[in-house]
Design a protein around this nucleic acid. Structure first.
Length: 155
DNA sequence: GCCAACGTTGGC
DNA sequence: GCCAACGTTGGC
């Protein structure tokens, strides 16, 4: 069964609007430099997985909409570029340390689902995003959490 | 801008 | 393997 994920992005770095404006409304998800997040990407993400796109360090912090994984994990070549902010000299083409997927826009939540709204929603109390101190930028989402969140913006 | 929470690094 | 120091995240 296809997985469900929540991806965090700071809108000042890469926003939901940036995704929608990208060619084919698709982007590579470069720059993940945390091992736990890397493992989710490399070992568990599949084409067709659904993605909640979350704006962190934003006002307000919110889930902006839904995207989908359209390319399976491949080496994050930004790690090999000394000019990149994501450069990591310990990652090489022969032995890549970091991986990314491509995601494509699917639809908006209108309005976005703010962190405050998520916190008020019954059934989401154990969602990883809402746990104190959880900084993980790639998080698995349960089917139940997904259904509850979709229900907040059912057409 | 503050600061708590967390992950990583590196000396020992 | 321990753990202090440091850097980063991210809500507020």
């Amino acid at each position: 069964m296809a997985g469900i994920w929540l991806l965090k992005s700071e809108p000042s770095v890469f926003s939901w609007q940036d995704l929608k404006a990208a060619p084919q409304q698709t982007t590579c998800w470069e720059g993940v430099r945390n091992y736990q997040a890397r493992n989710f990407i490399r070992d568990h993400m599949q084409v067709g997985d659904r993605v909640l796109f979350y704006h962190s360090n934003a006002n307000p912090a919110a889930i902006m909409g839904i995207a989908e994984v359209v390319k399976p994990a491949y080496p994050d070549h930004f790690a090999w570029n000394p000019e990149s902010r994501y450069f990591d000299p310990k990652s090489t083409p022969e032995n890549p340390r970091w991986f990314m997927v491509d995601i494509q826009y699917r639809r908006d939540f209108s309005p976005p689902i703010t962190l405050a709204e998520l916190r008020q929603t019954p059934g989401l109390e154990t969602m990883l995003l809402l746990q104190k101190g959880c900084r993980l930028s790639v998080q698995p989402v349960t089917e139940l959490e997904w259904q509850i969140i979709l229900g907040l913006r059912s057409p």
